[in-house]
């Protein structure tokens, strides 16, 4: 349906879960089983006693699908809260990437110059390679990667998105 496909938008969701065995499998399985897509997913414990984890999922869909995803996530027993950061007001999104670039001579200099503009740090170097560490919103990482492509990019490792709502309120 063409009308629906035009409404498809990217959403970043925070899912707070009890940190019990299998909880990540439940969340991922829900997405795959119901045909929702996952663009990125990150998870880590966030409480002192290791009982709570925060999952950040970036997905896309029509408003009806996004509402379904929220409702289906809330239905999982170990899920404490689900927030759609994209609709609930401004938020900060960051991801980190490690980017390995191989080359010598001019392209090596060029890579370093661009990295500087992007404030990417060099975290490893050899005479014919660099590893850059870059942090920022997804678009920035992607712009950096595409510029590195012709400059000898050979390997990428990305963390996926971590996100949090702006302002004093806490989830």
């Amino acid at each position: 349906m063409s009308a629906a496909s035009e409404d498809i938008a990217r959403h970043t969701m925070s899912v707070i879960v009890d940190n019990e065995a299998g909880v990540l499998a439940r969340v991922i399985g829900l997405f795959s089983g119901r045909g929702y897509n996952i663009e990125s997913l990150t998870v880590a414990e966030i409480s002192d006693d290791n009982t709570v984890s925060r999952i950040t999922v970036v997905t896309s869909g029509t408003p009806m699908v996004i509402d379904q995803i929220t409702a289906q996530l809330e239905r999982l027993v170990p899920v404490r809260a689900v927030r759609d950061l994209t609709v609930e007001g401004p938020s900060v999104e960051r991801e980190m990437a490690l980017v390995k670039v191989r080359g010598t001579g001019d392209i090596r200099v060029e890579a370093l110059r661009i990295a500087d503009i992007f404030r990417a740090r060099v975290v490893d170097t050899s005479t014919e390679s660099f590893i850059f560490e870059i942090t920022g919103p997804t678009e920035k990482i992607e712009a950096f990667i595409s510029l590195m492509q012709p400059l000898g990019l050979v390997e990428i490792s990305r963390t996926g998105v971590a996100a949090i709502a702006r302002g004093a309120e806490a989830l």
Binding site: M64, D67, Q68, A71
Partner: peptide
């Protein structure tokens, strides 16, 4: 009773 049933197939 299941919120996910609402607006799943039919608006």
């Amino acid at each position: 009773i299941d919120r996910s049933s609402i607006n799943k197939n039919i608006h």
